[in-house]
Amino acid sequence: MTGGKTPFLWTLFSAGGTLAALLFPVHLFLSGLAFPLGWLEAPSHDSLLNLVQHPLTRLYLFFLISLPLFHWAHRFRYTLYDGLKLKHLTTLIAVLCYGCALIGTVVTAYTLWNVP
């Protein structure tokens, strides 16, 4: 990775970290715990689809999924360097991490574009 890309990648990391910090706990608590365990009543398919059909919701979901993926890519890259001492695999790790985030972003955009 060259120095020129770092500020841009750091901005993605930072924006994704902020979105994940503000929004992930409530989403994860509801969809991963409260709804499956029956603590709260889950929204029906139709009402959720209705919500997702709104352009603002789609924009929201795009950033909600893609930016935290880039947050992960940036942070996990350094976790591998420092934690597992894999500094010699710099390029491979960077390509894999950001590549995965990019694929996730493309799939998200494609899915949101094709919401019926």
Partner: peptide, 28 residues
């Protein structure tokens, strides 16, 4: 290190959300 590892769970939930979105779009 635990703080750094939170990113793995952040990514996990981003993927789950994407998966849920795809299931939602695929129909009831």
């Amino acid at each position: 290190v635990l703080r750094e590892l939170t990113s793995v769970f952040v990514a996990f939930f981003a993927v789950i959300t994407l998966w849920q979105l795809r299931a939602l779009v695929d129909g009831p």
